[in-house]
């Protein structure tokens, strides 16, 4: 199992923790993003995730390199779902392992913030009465202000 992956299959947090090497470190922080049943006043039926896969994999790899530079000694993994995902299912899992809990929490938070900034994945929200493509950040991995904003949130 690679540390970075896109998959149409259900995500396995235990397997990713094992891959990151949770048994060799002092602290592990894990994040799971779940599909919620409401958004912006809509009752959500399900989501479909679309990805530009080769670039998404590269962007995820870049984020792990950034986090590894910012918090040396941390080891990270991130897996993201694609395709249709039902309410309550997991769309993303992130595992950060470190000798120290502060670094593990920060690297984990940094990773999800950066995923939302620069990874070419899109949510297609199907709700009662319609559907909409959600559009968040203009992806620009070289935007240093955005990267620093993610770092500040991670360390808050």
């Amino acid at each position: 199992m690679p540390l970075v992956a896109l998959t149409a299959q259900p995500l396995d947090l235990q397997a990713l923790m094992a891959e990151v090497g949770a048994d060799r470190v002092g602290a592990i922080a894990a994040f799971a993003g779940l599909v919620r049943d409401h958004n912006q006043g809509h009752r959500v039926r399900f989501l479909e995730y679309e990805a530009y896969e080769p670039l998404a994999i590269r962007a995820l790899g870049r984020i792990l390199e950034e986090a590894g530079t910012a918090w040396p000694g941390t080891r990270l993994g991130v897996h993201h779902r694609t395709g249709r995902i039902e309410i309550g299912e997991t769309s993303i899992i992130i595992v950060a392992a470190s000798p120290h809990r502060a670094d593990a929490f920060a690297a984990c938070r940094y990773t999800i913030e950066r995923v939302k900034q620069i990874v070419p994945i899109w949510k297609h929200e199907h709700f009662d009465g319609g559907e909409v493509w959600l559009e968040g950040a203009t992806a620009n991995p070289d935007d240093e202000d955005a990267r620093q904003a993610a770092h500040r949130i991670a360390c808050a």
Binding site: G33, Y49, A51, Y52, L55, A56, H80, S91, I92, I112, V115, K116, Q117, I118, V119, P120, I121, W122, K123, W133, L134, E135, G136, A137, T138, A139
Partner: peptide, 10 residues
């Protein structure tokens, strides 16, 4: 060549 609207992963 790919054109990418604002992203919304996570």
């Amino acid at each position: 060549v790919a054109f990418l609207p604002p992203v919304s992963g996570g």
